[in-house]
């Protein structure tokens, strides 16, 4: 079913909306959750929480791109679960992703200033639009979709070392861009 049709079902408050969402995007949401969480029960829970959150959000929210809308919800729910889990239960691959992102933060130990949600996102958008396409896609696949290095190497048909170096350079450039933008990280 097309995304428009699925959204219409949400607006009509039809339970079929969940069925159709699961059919079309269930696997997609599970992949995102699996990249962040390690336990099967957490992944199941995350997927179901995504459907519930979507049901509660639509309406009034009208998603632009349904896949991205659902992916965002899954991502945030999975991140919350990851933070809640003890170190033993956490997904180590995802921990590595968060550790990489620390490289974009000038000094994790400084006193944190206030920032508005979305303020940094617009600078990130500006940065991503300004870089070369392949580097941009690799960055997004790593830090939005949480793909592993091996998955990225296979997807973009390059060695793991090359993937790592592209990510490394892009993170450095992002850090510099955010600092220039006056975002106090």
């Amino acid at each position: 079913m097309e995304d428009q049709g699925i959204v219409r079902l949400y607006l009509q408050r039809s339970q079929q909306a969940i069925v159709e969402t699961k059919k079309k995007y269930g696997a997609y949401c599970r992949v995102i959750a699996r990249n962040i969480l390690s336990s099967l029960s957490d992944i199941d829970e995350c997927e179901n929480d995504t459907y519930l959150a979507a049901w509660n959000a639509i309406p009034p929210t009208m998603p632009g791109k349904l896949s991205v809308f659902l992916g965002r919800i899954t991502r945030n729910i999975a991140l919350d679960k990851h933070s809640y889990n003890t170190a033993k239960k956490r997904n180590r691959q995802f921990d590595a992703i968060l550790t990489e992102l620390e490289g974009c933060i000038a000094s994790p130990d400084t006193v944190e200033g206030e920032y508005e949600a979305g303020e940094t996102a617009s600078l990130i958008n500006e940065f991503l639009y300004g870089i070369e396409e392949q580097a941009r896609n690799i960055f997004i696949r790593r830090y939005w979709y949480s793909d592993s290095i091996e998955e990225l190497a296979m997807r973009f048909q390059m060695s793991s070392s090359k993937v790592k170096s592209i990510l490394f350079r892009t993170r450095n450039k992002l850090r510099a861009h955010l600092a220039k933008g006056g975002v106090h990280l």
């Binding site: 992102l101 620390e102 940094t120 990130i124 997004i140 939005w144 048909q157 106090h184 990280l185």
Partner: peptide, 25 residues
């Protein structure tokens, strides 16, 4: 800013970019 917060901020990036990366490679 904590790293988890930066991860969330990244989640708010432009939908077109996310969609393009979804079908890249």
């Amino acid at each position: 800013m904590k790293r988890e917060e930066l991860y969330r901020e990244i989640g708010l990036m432009d939908e077109d970019l996310i969609e393009a990366a979804g079908s890249s490679g």
